[in-house]
Nucleic acid binder design. Structure first.
Lengths: 196, 196
DNA sequence: GACGTTTCAGAATTATCATTCTAATTTCAG
DNA sequence: CTGAAATTAGAATGATAATTCTGAAACGTC
């Protein structure tokens, strides 16, 4: 009945992701981890090493999930690039508003554990990958004359990421979806070709 | 030599502001407060009540300082409104990059103490006041045909605040001033009249 | 079924920190 | 001066949490 470590690792990572996403690194205790993963404390330490490694596993699970979801949408050839960006943001905003916990990657960036080199390296590479994907999408938009031509795709991508981080802060403060969507729409209006 | 409480409160608030800004609420201990304010532990508890009230004092000191600085610049009749916005952001970005600690108000919003009702109320009223000031500035810009006419002043103001929060996250992660200025410039380009 | 190994639950350890307490010192009015 | 009141430095308290330890239970192999 009790799952062994081998078969339970994916579930464990999912539970870790949920726990750290909801509570943050510092406010999730090992007792919480034990309760929510169902795994034995001793086994956890043997398998992962310590709390930080547990967190890295959660971050990896989050990263894989987002990467699949976002990049698949952004690169969908059936969808106009700015519509794809919109779809990704609308999903993220709705989710953040429902959960009230911002985005795990943004939260990490503001927590003390974000100063850890291993954590920081993951955040950086994750943000780089997202930025590249946004840049590609905005380049395709520019090629279709759908991008504000005063804005370079790479700059627009960096702005989108900053807005996303800002929305994550708003979400942690209990902002509702409509407030956040309005902010995102303003950004998209300002970045779009027909804007002025 | 040791200052008494009456004359030292302004210095105390300044020291509290610095301490909590640099370390955050949770990672600043009462020992730190004792060391950095030079005040007696017992006296601190008598004067303030507890750690949260110490933090509120820090928040108040920060708020007063920013309010004077930012609103004076934003409302300066000698300066074109978008230039005034730019001046405020350039100051804030330079400061955040130098300190590497984001902005105190943004940090609060992401910390657990931001869930406290008294803290949340202060953050909300502070952000409202800033939003109103940005809205006024953007309305003046619109009257001079300097604002992207697809963007309503109130929406532009909300976007500026989200960007500011996002830049605060970047700053906490060690972003340098030029990266942050570039993001801000992109936002201003997209919000300006001659943008497309 | 028996034994060596693995896994378990939860206690022990160690550390940190907010808050309160205490005994000594300073202050200052008379 | 002097003695009551205020103020101090730092120890005690109580709580929480990461990590390690321990003795018991479960498991698999023969």
């Amino acid at each position: 009945m009790t799952p062994n470590l081998q078969t339970s690792i994916p579930d464990t990572q999912h539970a870790l992701k949920e726990l750290f996403w909801r509570r943050g690194y510092e406010h999730a205790s090992i007792d919480d981890v034990v309760n929510e993963t169902g795994l034995n404390r001793y086994a956890l330490y043997n398998a992962y090493g310590g709390k930080l490694e547990l967190f890295l596993a959660a971050l990896d699970a989050y990263y894989q999930e987002r990467k699949n979801l976002f990049l698949r949408n952004l690169n969908d050839p059936e969808t106009a690039p700015l519509d794809a960006v919109r779809r990704v943001f609308e999903f993220a905003i709705t989710e953040m508003a429902e959960r009230g916990t911002g985005c795990l990657m943004c939260n990490v960036a503001t927590e003390e554990c974000g100063r850890d080199p291993k954590v920081a390296a993951r955040v950086e590479s994750y943000l780089d990958e997202i930025r590249r994907a946004y840049t590609d999408a905005l380049e395709r938009a520019a090629a279709r004359d759908e991008l504000n031509n005063s804005v370079k795709p790479a700059d627009g991508a960096a702005l989108l990421i900053a807005v996303k981080l800002g929305l994550g802060v708003h979400a942690k403060n209990g902002a509702d979806a409509s407030t956040m969507l309005s902010i995102f729409n303003t950004a998209m209006t300002a970045l779009s070709a027909d804007s002025s």
